[in-house]
Design a protein around this nucleic acid. Structure first.
Length: 157
DNA sequence: GCCAACGTTGGC
DNA sequence: GCCAACGTTGGC
């Protein structure tokens, strides 16, 4: 089993959205590096950190579990969708998505500032300067280090 | 709203 | 294949 981190903007889709839906597809990934990980590396049973970006309280907000492996992201076929891509078609889909299931929320959002301050996470793509990957691998050591900070939560920053 | 950092596009 | 211009991401 592997670990991942998925970014989402909570104004659009948050850990609470997932808690209500329980299972959701993870559509809209439009970056080739992230796409390749979805397609080639992410497997049923893998655990995912749900990271809230571009919001007031950025950080790790919860955990999800992969319940379906990569299949075509049909939002790319819909001209009405924000994720429409004319270069993707049902015959030759360019983008894929997986389904994730809600596991739990973190006790508090573990803030980005806390993650940045952790030497154990110096190699994590999220905290490297300028990183924009929306999907990235997390090692078991990194995963455990992150949850060692869960109880501290917001108070650590 | 600002702006740095990065990815993509397209002319050559 | 190079690289400048442009668009996007995302923290602050």
């Amino acid at each position: 089993m592997a670990y991942w981190l998925f970014k989402t903007e909570p104004d659009t889709f948050s850990i609470d959205t997932l808690r209500i839906q329980q299972v959701s597809c993870w559509e809209g990934v439009r970056n080739y590096q992230a796409r390749n990980m979805l397609r080639d590396d992410i497997r049923i049973g893998d655990l995912v950190l749900i990271y809230h970006s571009s919001c007031k309280n950025v950080g790790v907000a919860g955990i999800a579990k992969v319940v379906r492996e990569a299949y075509p992201d049909h939002f790319a076929f819909d001209p009405e969708s924000d994720y429409f891509d004319a270069k993707s078609s049902p015959e030759n889909p360019r983008w894929v998505m997986v389904d994730v299931e809600f596991v739990r929320k973190t006790k508090r959002v573990i803030p980005l500032g806390v993650l940045k301050a952790m030497p154990e996470l110096s190699e994590l793509a999220l905290v490297k300067k300028g990183n924009r990957l929306s999907i990235m691998p997390v090692s078991e050591q990194e995963w455990q280090a992150i949850f060692s900070k869960e109880e501290l939560g917001n108070s650590a920053r």
